[in-house]
Design a protein around this nucleic acid. Structure first.
Length: 194
DNA sequence: AAAACGCACAACCGCGAAGGC
DNA sequence: CGCCTTCGCGGTTGTGCGTTT
């Protein structure tokens, strides 16, 4: 705990630090994490600031214990996705990857051998061969601009499919529906695997 | 009363991916 | 195209606190 040789503070966050960080994010918004410690006047590294905000201070965070539905969803998604905590958390509003990971590690990881129902599944049984890799898809609002990789992939796809249409409004709606359908089928498949 | 233990969760670290130049 | 910086994720460790002995 305390400062390291470079002068960056480590360890548990104080109330004052939380306030400074919160004020900074509210003023400048999320992102540009390398600037956050300077702007907030915090003696913390950018990673520490980001982690603190995303896992604890963000107003979207839902605190408290997991509901039965949430646990069920976690179990099913973990069966399909493996330790893709951020992806699993993405299907649980208000929960973070760290939350899900901690929950899994404390409630499931150490209980291997004493399982009998879906709440006691041994995650160690999951390997790369039976994990379904998520399709490289993101929702429209989460895709502010095309990345290099996406551009490359799209170029390849377009070259192979000259019938590709530009996205219209109804097309975008269909795309969203398609993604919802994909997740539903994914969960149905999880039930099927049971 | 206090030491030992266990649990839950906060926090750190390493690494790969993404993006900018 | 390569290099450097930044971001984000997952594994692991640390810490605080309640419970047990």
């Amino acid at each position: 705990m305390g400062n390291n040789p470079l002068g960056v503070r480590k360890g548990t966050w104080t109330k004052e630090e939380d306030i400074l960080l919160k004020q900074c994010i509210e003023k400048y918004g999320e992102g540009k994490w390398h600037q956050v410690p300077i702007r907030a006047g915090l003696n913390r590294c950018r990673k520490s600031c980001r982690m603190r905000w995303l896992n604890y201070l963000s107003p979207n965070i839902k605190r408290g214990s997991f509901t039965r539905d949430e646990v069920d969803l976690i179990v099913r998604l973990h069966k399909l996705l493996g330790n893709r905590w951020s992806l699993i958390a993405g299907r649980l509003p208000g929960r973070t990857g760290n939350d899900v990971k901690n929950f899994w590690n404390t409630h499931f990881e150490k209980k291997s051998g004493e399982r009998e129902n879906t709440e006691n599944i041994n995650p160690k049984l999951i390997n790369s061969s039976n994990i379904i890799k998520p399709q490289p898809r993101t929702f429209l609002k989460l895709r502010p601009k095309e990345t290099k990789k996406q551009k490359n992939i799209r170029n390849v796809c377009t070259a192979n499919d000259d019938k590709q249409q530009p996205l219209s409004t109804s097309g975008q709606l269909e795309e969203v529906n398609e993604r919802i359908r994909w997740w539903s089928e994914l969960l149905d498949f999880a039930d099927y695997v049971d």
